[in-house]
Amino acid sequence: MTVRAPWAVLLVPALLPLAGCYEELTPAYYEPGEYKGEQDPLLDKLEHREMQDELEQRFDRTARDR
């Protein structure tokens, strides 16, 4: 955990033009193994029985030798 001193907050933007680069100042912190991204709406859909049935039927139509 880094503690930023108030002077540093002022200093870093001041140094930026000199450095010619930009650095993200608010790093994110992660717990290992826990997804941090945006929620995929597909996940909810897949919970529905109808969706599961549809996929199962689709498999039957596409994969089985008929």
Binding site: G33, K36, D40, L43, L46
Partner: peptide, 24 residues
């Protein structure tokens, strides 16, 4: 892949599809 990802961009759907978030 999910186990080693340092930023945890992977997620798995309930039926086991492994996906990831390119923003992360």
């Amino acid at each position: 892949c999910a186990a080693v990802c340092p930023v945890d961009c992977f997620y798995t759907t309930t039926d086991g599809i492994v996906l990831h978030d390119k923003d992360i």
